[in-house]
Design a binder for these strands. Structure first.
Length: 551
RNA sequence: GGCCCCAUCGUCUAGCCCGGUCUAGGACACCUCCCUUUCACGGAGGUAACAGGGGUUCAAAUCCCCUUGGGGUCACCA
């Protein structure tokens, strides 16, 4: 079996959702490996027992697949995954870690430590008060007689294993950041096995990267300092050293860390601003609402948050890949835009696909500074991609989106109507989702349609004579007389009226019509709108509108 | 606070490594005008940055130092 020249990995902790930062890291790892004909693997870092391992733990895989980021090795999903270097869940690799752990202890490169959490916390606290950084003091535990260690272990005293970090400065070589040297003493004797028997992240990563023959570690910059620990471990275990590249962070526009907390923040602010004391109907329970509101540290589950957002009629910031999907962003656009946060191909090129990224991505052009995630620019990219695609493609992608996220809408509209609506919406859509949100008037019953009483509506309908209302009255018989009900035919019928009565200013007639049938001032082009709505509904709504505004 | 890293338009960035071609380029946003049956799109212009201070040099956005600012990290989380 030939060893691939390049093996990268994406190694998240278990999660049901992939956030954009993770997606960007995965994308770069994928592009780097695939561009070199190498292997991209996925590993689940589930060594924290407190943090779950339920069935939702790999929900994020679907997000990767949706983005088009395929993995050669790792958990199996569809055609992705598999591989001969598993298991790819760290929780299933305990035997392996224990073997290497024993090796280090036997060699005197690691030792059992019996400090309690309380003791450690107290020392940290003291160090903080004294104004200096806390460093673990090995003098006690590292020198325990073997008999004592064995005895304490035998009596079941909780113990961790710590790595005996050699004294001396450590120089990290990084392909993005360059070289950095941590002074001696900066890295203390860190824990490599927890009291529950699980390895810590540091230990598992080092063992797995070696065994899974990872050659390039691309990860977020927050891991930079950890690299020193990993190097210490590699040396202690006699492992080779992969090449490192630490990627700049992606943050909110205000430079704060992007997290699902942001959704909570928006909801909390809304509730407080509106002085609400109870949750909206059909969202979350009063008890849950109270508990959440009372404690700033309580976070709503994603499902609860989106229910509440719907109830409050606020839009939650997109954080996770599936948020963007639900909002109607295209996966290829998200990949494109994500790649632009922290990397650029230069030469004023901004729009590209993943094939291009694969060919051109390199560590030298990765930016060193954190990037603020600009949703507005993403939206603009999405708009360009949508308006640039063939009409049929838009219609079919919008249909799939509707079926997944707007089942109610799809149920109340015929296939033919949908096709017409999607066609009419194509060039005015920035996302796949927009047409479903702005065209709800198509799917409601004629007799429940209500009219907005806004300034613009009144201006269009109730101005000085001849006003919109009188045009509606006049145009009603014209429409009634229409033999054929298509956009083209309707245009042929209405235009002459406008020529005669509004000096060719079609808007004077179109806008009242739009209001009459939609209830508001926004719709697809008027003749399309009428055609899609159909003869009966159109006439019905116009009559009701006249009555409503005449009364 | 210790340690590490970073610093170009409001934002993402090009240029920096290998000083002169930079009067600093592009994109998003913003402003103005045009187009227009609403919304959106589109078209034409425009405003807008080398954090500050010292060096080095004939010449500095580019090299060096300091200051300031920002980020990361200091867990039996990953």
């Amino acid at each position: 079996m030939s060893t691939p020249s390049c093996v990268t990995r994406f190694a998240p902790s278990p999660s049901g959702h992939l956030h954009v930062g993770g997606a960007r890291t995965a994308l770069f790892c994928w592009a780097y490996a695939k561009g070199k004909g190498g292997t991209f693997l996925l590993r689940i870092e589930d060594t924290d027992q407190k943090r779950s391992s339920d069935s939702a733990s790999v929900g994020f895989l679907k997000d990767l697949a949706w983005l088009g980021i395929g993995w050669d090795e790792g958990p199996v999903l569809g055609t992705h995954g598999g591989g001969a270097h598993g298991p790819y869940f760290q929780s299933e690799r305990l035997d392996i870690y224990n073997r290497y752990l024993a090796q280090l202890v036997d060699a005197g490169k690691a030792y059992y430590a019996f400090d309690t959490t309380a003791e450690l916390d107290a020392k940290r606290q003291a160090a903080k008060l004294a104004g200096h950084a806390y460093r673990y003091d090995r003098s006690e535990m590292a020198n325990l007689p073997k008999a004592t260690v064995d005895a304490w272990l035998a009596e079941g005293r909780p113990a961790v294993i710590r790595c005996k970090t050699p004294d001396g400065p450590i120089t990290i070589v990084d392909e993005v950041l360059g070289e950095a040297t941590l002074p001696a003493g900066e890295v203390d004797d860190f824990v490599i096995r927890k009291a529950d028997g699980f390895p810590t992240y540091h230990f598992a990563v080092v063992v797995d990267d070696e065994l899974m023959r990872v050659t390039h570690v691309l990860r977020a910059q927050e891991h930079f300092n950890n690299t020193a620990k990993h190097m210490v471990l590699q040396d202690a275990l006699g492992f080779r050293r992969p090449i490192y590249g630490h990627l700049p962070l992606i943050t909110n526009p205000d430079a704060s860390k992007m997290s699902k907390r942001d959704k909570d923040k928006v909801l909390r602010k809304t509730v407080i601003d509106r002085k609400l004391t109870a949750p909206p109907q059909d969202t979350i329970t009063q008890a849950r609402f109270d508990a959440w509101l009372a404690d700033k540290n309580t976070q709503l589950e994603l499902a609860e948050a989106s229910l509440l957002a719907t109830g409050l009629q606020v839009t939650l910031p997109e954080i996770n890949v599936d948020d963007f999907r639900q909002s109607g962003y295209l996966p290829e656009v998200l990949c494109n835009f994500l790649a632009l946060n922290g990397w650029s191909p230069g030469e004023n090129v901004e729009k590209f696909d993943t094939e291009f990224l694969k060919q051109r991505f390199d560590l030298k052009r990765v930016v060193k500074t954190p990037a603020k995630f600009d949703r507005t620019k993403l939206l603009s990219f999405n708009c360009d991609a949508i308006t640039g695609m063939p009409r049929e493609e838009f219609v079919s992608r919008a249909r799939l989106h509707g079926q997944e996220f707007h089942a109610d809408f799809m149920k109340r509209i015929t296939a033919e109507q949908f096709e017409q609506l999607a066609s009419a919406s194509h060039e005015r859509s920035k996302t796949l989702d927009e047409m479903f949100r702005t065209n709800r008037f198509f799917i409601i019953a004629d007799d429940v349609l209500a009219w907005e009483r806004s300034k613009n509506v009144e201006k269009a309908l109730l101005g000085p004579e001849p006003n919109g209302l009188s045009h509606l009255r006049a145009v009603l018989p014209v429409l009634e007389g229409c033999a054929e009900w298509s956009a083209a035919a309707l245009e042929q019928a209405i235009t002459p009226y406008a020529m005669q009565h509004t000096e060719g200013n079609l808007g004077k007639v179109a806008q009242p019509l739009r209001i009459a049938v939609s209830g508001g001032t926004v719709s697809p082009p008027i003749f399309d709108t009428l055609a899609i709505l159909g003869r009966d509904s159109t006439l019905n709504r116009i009559r009701r509108c006249i009555a409503s505004f005449t009364a």
